[in-house]
Design a protein around this nucleic acid. Structure first.
Length: 265
DNA sequence: GCGTCGTCCTGCGCGC
DNA sequence: TGCGCGCAGGACGACG
């Protein structure tokens, strides 16, 4: 499923194709789901940005086309079997492929994210220089949720989904059911390092491509970070750090993977 | 204001 | 082989 590394990979590949080009039109057959996205048509793309898991087409006239890939969405340069939206640019067509229809497209005035509360409340970009352990600690201190749920909310830090939250917590040796505002600063520092390390490495490898959800890059090629997953999707296998069997539990309704020895409550 | 839970949607794997 | 069921997942609105 597309999280920060996958969305960043898409952004890097798509930017040379669309930036500077005019979005001529936008075709879809689901007005309820993609309502308002047509307002983006006719405008030139000034930049293609990413904020957390959101792709932001910055258009002329201070408008933004916001794309969230949901759990199964991809932006492709070839038509797939589940194309939901066709974005016609000058000289190129981009296909929004989304089997499970969890993805969203929306045109909004630049910076006006009232209709997108998660984007409006989004925490700092983890790979930015300004993202420090202190900043993470301050945001974790605001909530009494368990760590896993807190991280998935996008509020302590942007861009983590189920895969990278599990991987980062394992790397930081923190149990996902720990209470966010009860961490020692030294533990927050470990989490801060782990989040950045995991995401940087995943961006370098083009993200994760798993059988289910089947994220691919715009050119149809897979990412390779799944080969390095330590715990996600590996219940029953040996922890790569200590050899203990990895367990699967459910937190906040999401499957969660832990090493019971490395990650103590 | 905060946290939790149900809902959206569809492909896939499993059991019968 | 074929059918039906349950699960997976991110964001968001409803509710307590």
């Amino acid at each position: 499923m597309p999280e920060l590394p996958e969305v960043e990979t898409v952004r890097r590949m798509l930017a040379p194709v669309v930036v500077g080009r005019r979005l001529l039109g936008l075709e879809h057959d689901d007005p309820a789901r993609y309502r308002g996205a047509e307002g983006a048509a006719g405008r030139r793309v000034r930049a293609l940005r990413r904020r957390g898991k959101y792709l932001i087409f910055a258009l002329e006239g201070r408008l933004e086309l916001i794309v969230h890939l949901g759990m199964s969405g991809s932006l492709r340069l070839d038509e797939g079997t589940h194309t939901r939206v066709r974005l016609e640019f000058e000289g190129a067509t981009v296909f929004f492929n989304d089997p499970r229809r969890f993805g969203r497209l929306r045109a909004v005035p630049a910076g006006d994210y009232r209709a997108l509360p998660t984007l409006a409340r989004m925490g700092p970009e983890p790979l930015d220089r300004g993202f420090t352990a202190r900043a993470l600690a301050a945001r974790l201190a605001r909530t009494s949720r368990v760590l896993k749920t807190a991280l998935l909310s996008q509020e302590p830090v942007a861009g983590l989904g189920n895969i990278y939250a599990d991987e980062a917590l394992w790397k930081a040796r923190l149990h996902p059911a720990r209470i966010a505002n009860a961490l020692a600063f030294e533990e927050v520092q470990r989490l801060h390092r782990a989040v950045r390390g995991v995401l940087r490495r995943a961006v370098d490898l083009g993200g994760s491509t798993l059988g289910d959800g089947a994220y691919t890059r715009p050119d149809g090629e897979p990412g390779y970070f799944q080969i390095e997953h330590a715990v996600y999707g590996r219940a029953g296998e040996a922890c790569p750090r200590c050899g203990r069997t990895i367990e699967r539990l459910v937190l906040g309704g999401r499957s969660t993977h832990v090493c019971p020895r490395c990650q103590r409550r």
